[in-house]
Design a binder for these strands. Structure first.
Lengths: 202, 202
DNA sequence: GTCTATACTGAGATAGAC
DNA sequence: GTCTATCTCAGTATAGAC
């Protein structure tokens, strides 16, 4: 069958997203996709490579959208100073659309940045857009040292990952995904605008 | 041997912290601890219960320190308005001391909040201090809706977890743990002070 | 009460038949 | 391209030695 690969990808995306990568066995994937155990190894090589393929398929469009929003903001600023809030929103909001179309994939995205291991995999899929955004933020916030800025980006990724991948630890907070991300964007924008290590006040 | 339990706990703490829970096999733990496979099941019951025990042993003091710092800040304010920054610092900084004494355990703490699964375990060990801090934050920031505040706490936990558990995704950022947490505290304090959903400006 | 030896089930991976 | 058989190693359960 020609769509064996597709079925495996779809099923893996759903299961990895809802249960996590480690907690999902290949055997569960192949059972629900109704294919053979060896098929996944034939098509993808290993469980980790399957995850890689699942990510690659959907992250590209998110990255494109992010970069498009960033370019748009820069065009509007017309060479003038860019607001950090706009940059952050351009980074966050594209995930909302994917969430609408495919909630499980967004959870998977969050998990990837979180699930401890595989920094290579996470890095590979996020580095492209991330470095571009870092440069934009550096231009928007020249008063921050490079180290301070990189840490703030790190904080942003942590908060985003935690927000994408699931239920809050403390309470069951509902709410639309877009609303949730807008809250996050407001929060992070203020964080980025905080005084740096050697500044006394804002 | 009387300290079999201890050896298992120490080894598990180190390995879970450095490699992650899922990536660490019990057999690796028992090999490095030089005990038998069944010993861990005799003393702890299961791999998950072992993790639980590892956490329980060290999180208590962190929680105590957090609450002590919070109480201290409240005493100094003498009934007056408490600054959110103080509350956040009281929540974050105790982890720095544990990091000094035991870097691996801090990474494990971060992973726990992150490693996707086991929300029950993470929740159980963090809820005690977390609810206390939420109440303090609510008093400090009465202009925020409960939902908005809970989301900001969620963002804080995400950023903290990501910062505790390891290497930044983008670059190798070094630096003392205390410095790192202070950066985070500044960032988060500004985030908490951001205008809420229905406020126009700060 | 503590621990060891050993066996059981299910995981990911691989080789080779078709 | 696909499937069966099989390998190794994981977590778990039990029996019994001391």
């Amino acid at each position: 069958m020609i769509d064996t690969k597709q079925k495996i990808l779809d099923t893996a995306e759903r299961l990895f997203g809802s249960q996590g990568y480690a907690a999902t066995s290949l055997r569960q994937v192949i059972a629900e996709a109704e294919v053979n155990v060896a098929a996944v190894h034939y098509h993808f090589g290993s469980k980790e490579d399957l995850l890689d393929a699942v990510l690659a398929r959907k992250i590209g469009p998110v990255t494109d959208h992010r970069l498009k929003l960033l370019a748009q903001a820069e065009a509007e600023a017309a060479g003038g100073p860019l607001d950090a809030g706009r940059i952050i929103a351009a980074f966050l909001m594209p995930t909302a659309e994917v969430a609408q179309a495919n909630p499980m994939f967004v959870r998977l995205m969050g998990r990837m940045l979180n699930e401890g291991m595989m920094p290579q995999i996470a890095a590979r899929h996020f580095r492209d857009s991330a470095t571009r955004f870092v440069r934009a933020l550096e231009k928007a916030m020249p008063q921050l040292s490079h180290e301070e800025l990189m840490w703030r980006v790190h904080f942003m990724i942590g908060a985003m990952a935690h927000t994408l991948c699931g239920q809050p630890v403390l309470e069951n907070l509902g709410g639309d995904f877009t609303v949730r991300l807008r809250r996050l964007a407001r929060f992070l924008a203020a964080g980025f605008h905080a005084p740096g290590e050697n500044e006394e006040a804002k």
